[in-house]
Design a protein around this nucleic acid. Structure first.
Lengths: 246, 246
DNA sequence: GCCATCCTTCCGCACAACGGAAGGCCGGTC
DNA sequence: GACCGGCCTTCCGTTGTGCGGAAGGATGGC
């Protein structure tokens, strides 16, 4: 059964990237024997591998296949030079993310050594409404999808985290008008982020990037650099010059 | 059956990252109906997703799981700063790779804009004996494993590609003695590479990096920089100072 | 030496995956 | 506008494959 195979893969998380057989069995709820067989088959193929101590971890072959995801490494590779430039110029945290249902998934993250250091790695998730990248993405997403997102309960991080759908709707209009999304103190009280959408062919928004700066800074000062980077990546992805206009 | 699920995933390659249902069916040899169900289940989970035109591609969720591979993104993230430094200083192609059976898998690749430009993106493979990284890895691999690799037929790229097991064995001894692996014109006649092993805890070699330079250059000039980068990454991975000595 | 924990192998049964058949849905052709 | 050829999707009865209980090693701690 396919679902069980995927359950096994899903048992691996960033917090626990190495698991014992029994641990996998516990997490998936599958009988030990079944787990044993599944894990064996996955390991034989290279989707999992066995480290020291007999613990299982995600294997090289699965990484290779995962790297084929257009929204993963593919996007990352083309965006990298622009992210680095932006990072170099500003010395702040720079992030690249895509939308998945109601969350954003961070595809790349360049951390400033000295600046506000938020340390979640590539592959982590946050609610879309609470982040600069997320607002930039939602602003250009299918309205029907946006409504579904806004209908779900909001996760709260700080006292400034948005929880009112109407407030978000208004903000999204603002984002469409200005071309940038500013999220203030929604995740942490000490920081805010400035995000902008990235477009591919036909002008469709496929990703977003953002820069995270201390709350003392003036976010508007970063807008031109953020927009320039977003436009650069959009062009690299094949969006026409016209389509890159807001 | 687990194998069939994996067959479907394996149908996706760097050359053809987007496939139609029938195309997947053809490649895997599975009946169309069966493929349809498997692909549906995989897509529901997020391992695959459906792009424009109905073509299937690798999904975000699989990318996330793949990113957990310690030898994939995990290694990459920690090595990145050192790779960038090396790249910055030398302005040449810099690569990070791990060993998988008889091949090396490139985990990261920083391409020089002007220097000898070598193809193939992160996730690609080459025979271990024909590359700088591969020789560095084999030199510190289980001797039994090395013999298995040398027993298999050699793929030839240029007239300088090594095909004599004894010659390789000798070279591996040399690598162990000097701490660096130099591969000359094995892949292309215009380039050579200088590789060095990267160690993790207990001094075990887990990866290697290399720099690719034109054949006119003196490879030995790059040895100190390459070794410094390899030692830096090893330290970042938790190898003790002693273990990082050759 | 004993017990606890984890991993591995075996094997008969049941039921879920299998895949043939049939039917939609394009878009091209005459 | 009728026909055809590629694709994709749904249905459903049969069968063989994955399932998981039981039992047997392998460690390692006390």
């Amino acid at each position: 059964m396919t679902a069980r195979v995927l359950d096994v893969l899903g048992a691996f998380t960033a917090a626990t990237p190495e698991l014992s057989l029994t641990e996998i069995s516990r997490r998936t709820g599958l009988p030990l024997t079944t787990t044993h067989r599944l894990v064996g088959e996955l390991a034989a193929w290279g989707a999992l591998e066995r480290g020291e101590g007999g613990l299982y971890r995600v294997g090289l072959r699965l990484w290779e296949v995962g790297a084929l995801a257009p929204r993963g490494l593919g996007l990352r590779e083309r965006a990298m030079p622009y992210l680095e430039d932006l990072h170099e110029v500003t010395r702040e945290n720079v992030q690249l993310a895509v939308l998945d249902a109601a969350e954003v998934v961070y595809v790349e993250r360049l951390a400033a050594r000295d600046a506000v250091s938020i340390r979640s790695r590539a592959g982590s998730r946050l609610p879309a409404t609470a982040t600069g990248v997320g607002l930039a993405l939602l602003a250009h997403a299918d309205p029907e999808h946006v409504e579904k997102v806004l209908a779900a309960p909001f996760r709260r991080f700080t006292e400034k985290t948005l929880t009112d759908p109407d407030r978000v709707r208004h903000l999204l209009g603002e984002v469409r008008r200005t071309g940038v999304a500013i999220s203030e103190q929604q995740i942490e009280m000490v920081s805010q982020s400035v995000g902008a959408p990235i477009r591919a062919g036909q002008g469709r928004v496929v990703a977003a990037l953002s820069i995270v700066v201390p709350i003392e800074a003036n976010p508007h000062a970063y807008v031109p650099a953020v927009l320039a980077a977003a436009r650069g990546i959009s062009r690299a992805l094949g969006a026409s010059a016209l389509a890159t206009q807001p």
